[in-house]
């Protein structure tokens, strides 16, 4: 069991954490994503980063509402969250969700919420660079044939392509790029609030189309950085009856098993 303190706990002790871990809705409630959340918290604990969560004071950033077109609801959520964040005088935030990352980093500033926002891939890469995270020589992913799926909001949305790949390199994995990757990466199909509704009528589901790219690489593991991509890719693999042959993992899970 990991001991996780909230901002309120820190405040009660008259202290300030180094960084706020913004967990996000998927990370808080989705069973698969919760495992990634705990593993990220585990890494932070192992290397001694003093972090806090907001716990019940955290709310949806409003990303799906905004992208569906409900700007009013988005700004209501932003208002509430900014009140809480500014109330605790939060300076630095790290999050395991690229949607939360994008919203907090790019969309909150003009609404009055200005923070130093990090996505976990860059955050972890930075810690590896600084030597705070040491990868074991005999990590279980060494030499494994893997592929990496760029989420839209980390990749095209925020131009972060290299940090996650550098982590995979540090782990000594055998990376096979999909035919559509980096700037040309294909969406998993979840963004723009699609996650919360049935897909429009068409030939094939977006996640199944993306799964074809994954299968083409013949990788054993597809690495992602977003809880929604992970759900989509898992469903896509299931639809192809390949869920036992190809695992979908967050970069956090690879790293946590290797330090």
């Amino acid at each position: 069991m990991i001991q996780v303190k909230t901002m309120a706990d820190y405040l009660a002790q008259g202290e300030n954490p180094d960084v706020l871990f913004w967990v996000g809705c998927a990370g808080s409630f989705d069973d698969r994503a919760k495992r990634i959340t705990s593993q990220f918290a585990e890494i932070l604990t192992k290397i001694g980063v003093r972090f806090a969560i907001l716990g019940s004071e955290e709310s949806c950033t409003g990303d799906p509402a905004r992208r569906a077109g409900n700007e009013f609801l988005f700004q209501m959520m932003a208002y509430q969250n900014i009140q809480v964040l500014n109330g605790y005088e939060v300076k630095k935030i790290v999050t395991t969700c690229p949607h939360c990352f994008n919203t907090l980093k790019n969309e909150y500033p003009e609404l009055g919420g200005k923070y130093d926002v990090w996505h976990h891939t860059e955050f972890l890469q930075d810690l590896i660079d600084k030597g705070n995270i040491k990868i074991t020589d005999t990590n279980e992913y060494k030499g494994k044939r893997i592929t990496y799926h760029d989420s839209c909001y980390l990749g095209r949305g925020n131009n972060i392509y290299e940090a996650p790949r550098q982590i995979l390199e540090a782990l000594d994995t055998d990376l096979y790029e999909m035919k559509r990757s980096k700037k040309n990466g294909l969406c998993c199909g979840a963004g723009g609030a699609q996650m919360f509704k049935e897909e429009e009528h068409g030939g094939i589901r977006v996640n199944e189309e993306r799964t074809k790219d994954v299968l083409d690489t013949q990788a054993e593991i597809v690495v992602a950085n977003c809880p929604f991509c992970i759900t989509m890719l898992q469903d896509g693999l299931k639809a192809n009856e390949k869920q036992d042959e190809v695992k979908v993992l967050d970069i956090v899970e690879l790293l946590n098993a290797s330090i």
Binding site: V4, F29, C60
Partner: peptide, 23 residues
Amino acid sequence: MFGNIETNGAPWKFSPTERGNWA
């Protein structure tokens, strides 16, 4: 989804008090 965000602060029907439960 809108309704859930408005009342529960999350796009699904979970209570905000359960947010930290993973920990």
